[in-house]
């Protein structure tokens, strides 16, 4: 297995060649904020919070640390002024959905985010996709998925599957950075128990 050497925030870091910049940074004790990342899941690159500046073969660009493969002699800067501005605005956008999320709150101060910058939204979901991907990739059940596109995109349980699988699992609840998932689940359960043809697994 090859090893590459790169520089992250002026620190020389050795990493295995199949690592991502995020993994390399973590191994060197350098903190990069993430929301949609999870070790057990494929990189998703949706929240964009982990954006860093990478310089490789003379080219400088912004990329998500959670997906960017390490390269020999790569230079990474994790906290430039531009990056701070990006993270601040991204946090503010997410706070419009979930102003009370503990995970978001933890970052608010560091990036000087204003939770009232944007109008509040009805849905708590910040679309990190952790629940959807965990259920599909790890549990192989796909009881919850996304529907729609663009600004209409949201998570949605599949009642038939949720009624069989979720009661005894609920592992995704802990992954959700907001309260959106539990709300959606409770809503689904209410729907299912309304319809007489369904019997909840738990009640059997």
């Amino acid at each position: 297995m090859g090893v590459v050497t790169l520089t992250i925030d002026n620190k020389e870091v050795k990493a295995k060649e199949e690592m991502t910049v995020l993994e390399a940074a973590q191994s060197a004790g350098i903190d990069i904020p993430t929301l949609c990342h999870h070790e057990k899941l494929e990189p998703y690159t949706a929240c964009r919070l982990c954006m860093v500046e990478v310089e490789s073969r003379g080219r400088v660009k912004l990329d998500t640390a959670c997906s960017s493969p390490v390269k020999e002699n790569m230079v990474v800067r994790t906290k430039t002024e531009d990056i701070i501005k990006i993270r601040r605005t991204l946090l503010e956008l997410m706070l419009s959905h979930a102003p009370d999320s503990r995970e978001l709150q933890a970052l608010v101060k560091e990036y000087g985010a204003d939770k009232d910058r944007f109008e509040k939204e009805a849905s708590f979901c910040i679309h990190c996709g952790l629940c959807v991907r965990y259920c599909a990739e790890v549990k192989k059940k796909s009881a919850v998925g996304f529907i729609n596109s663009g600004v209409r995109r949201e998570i949605s349980f599949v009642p038939e599957i949720a009624s069989k699988e979720c009661w005894n699992c609920k592992e995704c609840f802990e992954l959700c950075p907001t309260e959106a998932l539990q709300t959606a689940y409770l809503f689904t359960v209410a729907q299912i128990s309304d319809s007489p043809s369904f019997e909840l697994e738990s009640e059997k």
Binding site: V132, C135, A136, S142, A143, V144, G145, F146, I147, N148, S149, S156, V158, E160, I161
Partner: peptide, 12 residues
């Protein structure tokens, strides 16, 4: 194909 995937496809 999972129903979740089909739901997404049919609405995406």
């Amino acid at each position: 194909v999972s129903l979740a995937q089909i739901q997404h496809t049919a609405t995406f």
